Simulated assay, not measured.
Amino acid sequence: MDCSYFDAGVCRSCTLMGVPYAEQLAGKDRHARELLAPYGDASWLPPVASAESGYRNKAKMVVSGTVDAPTIGILDEAGRGVDLRACGICAPGVRAALPVLADFVTRARIEPYSVPERRGELKYVLVTHSPDDELLVRFVVRSEEAVGRIRSRLPELLAALPNARVVTANLQPEHKAVVEGDREIVLTPESSLVMRVGGIPLRLRPQSFFQTNTAVAEALYAQVASWVDEVGPASVWDLYCGVGGFALNVAAPGRRVVGVETSTEAVRSARATASAAGLPLVAFRAGDATAFALAAKSAPELVIVNPPRRGIGAELSGWLEGSGVPSVVYSSCNPKSLAHDLARMPSYRIRTGRVLDMFPQTGHLEVAVLLDRVGA
């Protein structure tokens, strides 16, 4: 993949840009295998490749510049806007929306936020694209006044961007390195975007986590479901479940599944999907994964964990180590934190693993492993 932004030196976010894709994939696979070699004589499956470009279903774009000439992209070292609306790793549906949104900023007269001057209203536009070519568009602003401007011009935006299924405004008034605030104002009748993955219509609400690469997410869900079916547990926990991707994909007759996630919006989404799919044995709880495990009166037969980059940490690792749970599936976007957690769980060994390239052109990767308890 070639990138004019990278070649011009204005954006270096994709650190592997220019490296042949086969070399990128082989390097990630090798790195994961070497890093995790001490934790079991694993059988590694071939890595899952991605499209080299156009794979990101979500763009988190900083808005800067002026009302009449807004930039949508990133900030340079001086805090000035760098326009990346033609970014090649974004899905075509996202790229098509960005110029429309830039024009809307001008027409609605929403002043972009200036980080150096600490003034302005609009900080980010967050755009998510679904397999059905529908969009979730979120404007991160500082005040209700900007919300009013968006609301008053919303019919114009929907006319120019008819596939915008959900449009919201998120209030984040503070000057700090936080993308979004707690308060979300839904401006459209619909409040969730349907993401059809593996035949399951996951409902994505604002502030809900979802993998950035839809095709590879589908492969990840299928792989984990295959491993779970191979083990055949009667009860499963899906910790850090997000909108329920793993929990809903491993559901089976007679199998009780509980998903746990801190985001109440994600839990609402997951519950709606489970209800629509007629899955009475799949339940979701809003709360901290570690606290849920520590408070539970009994353990399931299999636990799935899909934590943030920091991993599950010492406390949950310790609980798993002493829990007696026979099998664990660990999906990680950071092999280093996965290795740290496995070092705290010496009773588990990797039976099989697989690298999935969720983030081409970057050094990031997803790795999933099936763990067996020794002697279980």
Rank of each mutant, 00 (worst) to 15 (best):
M1C: 14
D7H: 14
G9T: 13
S13G: 15
M17A: 15
Y21E: 10
Y21H: 13
A22P: 07
A22G: 15
Q24P: 00
L35E: 04
L35Y: 11
A42G: 10
L45F: 09
V48Q: 04
A51V: 08
N57V: 02
K58Y: 10
T66Q: 04
D68M: 03
T71S: 09
I74D: 00
E77G: 09
G79K: 02
L84R: 01
L84V: 06
R85T: 11
I89F: 01
A91D: 09
P92N: 01
R95S: 03
L98V: 08
V100Q: 03
V100G: 07
T106P: 06
A108N: 08
I110C: 03
I110E: 01
S114Y: 07
E117C: 10
G120L: 07
S130K: 01
S143A: 06
E145C: 05
G148N: 08
P155G: 04
L157N: 05
E174N: 12
K176D: 12
V178C: 05
V178R: 14
D182K: 12
E184M: 05
V186D: 07
G198E: 04
P201W: 03
L204Y: 02
Q211A: 09
N213D: 10
A219Q: 12
Y221V: 06
Y221T: 04
A222G: 11
A225L: 01
V228K: 00
V228Q: 01
G242F: 03
G244Y: 09
G245P: 05
R255A: 04
V258Q: 14
V258T: 15
S263E: 08
A276W: 12
V282T: 14
R285K: 15
A286C: 15
A286V: 12
D288R: 09
A289M: 08
A296V: 08
A296Q: 06
A299L: 10
L302C: 09
V303A: 11
I304M: 12
R309T: 05
A314H: 09
E315R: 13
L316D: 00
W319N: 08
L320E: 09
G324L: 11
V325P: 01
S332L: 08
P335F: 01
A339K: 06
A339M: 06
A343P: 00
R344C: 04
S347A: 15
V355E: 06
V355T: 14
D357M: 09
L365P: 01
E366K: 06
V369S: 07
D372L: 05
